[in-house]
């Protein structure tokens, strides 16, 4: 489903990571652990195609990557002037998939803030909105970067629920600093 072969990324003459290989199938949930600056986020971004790779290959799930790949990252920015519902409509229009606004907002428990501009959302609310956008097209591969950051207890339970659902339709990669988030995975990759 998702295959990474001898992947390497070099930036400014320094290797961020090198010789990384793994293959994930349906139901596989991989957690990437490592110290700060180990390259966890860069690895996720490289897999998603947002950063160019220096060597190696990445085979993404079959189909249009706009729909087969979902990414939710802590540092991902959103449009301050657009409301929560408008964000979901925008990403659905661009991906060419159904918007499912009501269903997604109910799932991430953000229905009450659907008409609120993103600039007026808290960090946790933004994280929920980004999660809703990431799972909108039911992606075959879901990439989560620090998914628990900024979330309350209820939000963490939501992450558990979403990752469990993802395991039934595809694979999941979680990059985190938090050892507790190993609970989300059945495989781990320690960047050393």
């Amino acid at each position: 489903m998702l295959k990474v072969d001898r992947l390497g990324k070099k930036y400014g003459g320094r290797w961020i990571f090198r010789e990384l290989s793994f293959e994930l199938g349906v139901g596989d949930r991989l957690v990437i652990l490592g110290r700060n600056g180990a390259g966890k986020s860069t690895l996720l971004r490289t897999i998603a195609g947002l950063t160019s790779r220096t060597e190696g290959t990445v085979m993404l799930p079959e189909g249009d990557s706009r729909c087969t790949l979902g990414l939710c990252a802590l540092e991902q920015s959103v449009y301050g002037q657009l409301t929560v519902a408008e964000h979901l409509q925008l990403t659905a229009d661009l991906r060419g998939c159904p918007a499912r606004i009501d269903e997604l907002l109910e799932k991430v428990n953000l229905d009450y803030a659907r008409s609120r501009p993103a600039s007026q959302l808290s960090t946790g609310m933004k994280a929920r909105m980004k999660m809703a956008m990431a799972i909108q097209a039911n992606p075959a591969a879901l990439l989560l970067d620090e998914p628990g950051a900024g979330l309350d207890e209820e939000g963490r339970m939501l992450i558990d629920q979403i990752t469990a659902e993802q395991a039934t339709r595809g694979c999941l990669i979680v990059a985190t600093n938090d050892p507790l988030e190993r609970r989300l995975a059945n495989l781990e990759l320690q960047l050393v």
């Binding site: 010789e19 490592g34 495989l187």
Partner: peptide, 8 residues
């Protein structure tokens, strides 16, 4: 250059 292997 960080690297690693996948394990359960």
């Amino acid at each position: 250059a960080p690297t690693g292997v996948v394990r359960p």
